[in-house]
Design a protein around this nucleic acid. Sequence first.
DNA 1: CTTGTATTCAACCAATCGGTTGAATAAGGA
DNA 2: TCCTTATTCAACCGATTGGTTGAATACAAG
Lengths: 124, 124
Amino acid sequence: MEDSPEQRLSRSFAALSDPVRRDIVARLTIGDATVSDLAAPYDISLQAVSKHLKVLEEAGLVSRRREAQRRPVHLESQALAEMTGWIERHQRRAEQRMARLEEVLADLPSSDTTGTSDTHGAGQ
Amino acid sequence: MEDSPEQRLSRSFAALSDPVRRDIVARLTIGDATVSDLAAPYDISLQAVSKHLKVLEEAGLVSRRREAQRRPVHLESQALAEMTGWIERHQRRAEQRMARLEEVLADLPSSDTTGTSDTHGAGQ
DNA sequence: CTTGTATTCAACCAATCGGTTGAATAAGGA
DNA sequence: TCCTTATTCAACCGATTGGTTGAATACAAG
């Protein structure tokens, strides 16, 4: 029972939808850190932070190794890359479409250039 | 009571954590569409899709205009840009750090290049 | 072996989520 | 006016989420 790319993407986005987890990711860009290191800035329990890390790990955004009784957390930037991959792909499509649209509008007779109106004709 | 950038980011990521909503965004890169257009491919009720669109709208990822009794939905690619902004910023930091680390490792005497070990010395 | 430290597991709770169905609203057309 | 089409609102429901506290596990060090 392994993970479809769809599911991993869902988990990654869900993981970064929490400000504490985004904050943790930001912190990890500076360097690996233990659970207690990461928990220090927050008012929540260590267990809560541990849960957040589990969520990040299951999304593939971080990995953990063992080092004595500590469990240093490491950011997996490749998982971030997959997310930007998805977003940019769609962003690009949307922007290309808008560019084509504006080109067409520029060629038209005249009247108002107002309103972000659109073809929107079916498709599907 | 307006929206901090932090909150909008949370909402955007949460919005894209659902496969149906990602799918809708993908569909909208082709062109604006009505609620029923968007609902057609799915087995869920029209109301459920309407809710999904509300989530996307509150995240700033789509906007809606009125056109007779229809409410065509339009993708706001700029909101996607904000997301990639956040991710890439952190991705870049992480990768730069790794690059510096590898540089240092290359200069070291010898022994194992194994294990993604790390400085991880405090920080905070 | 006992103690201390770092972390996770387990059970619980309130809030949110994704879905449902049924009723309400908005607008065009007979 | 009445009917149809498009969409939203409202109430409800089970599952998931982010937090809690208390007990368990994994190691290191006396």
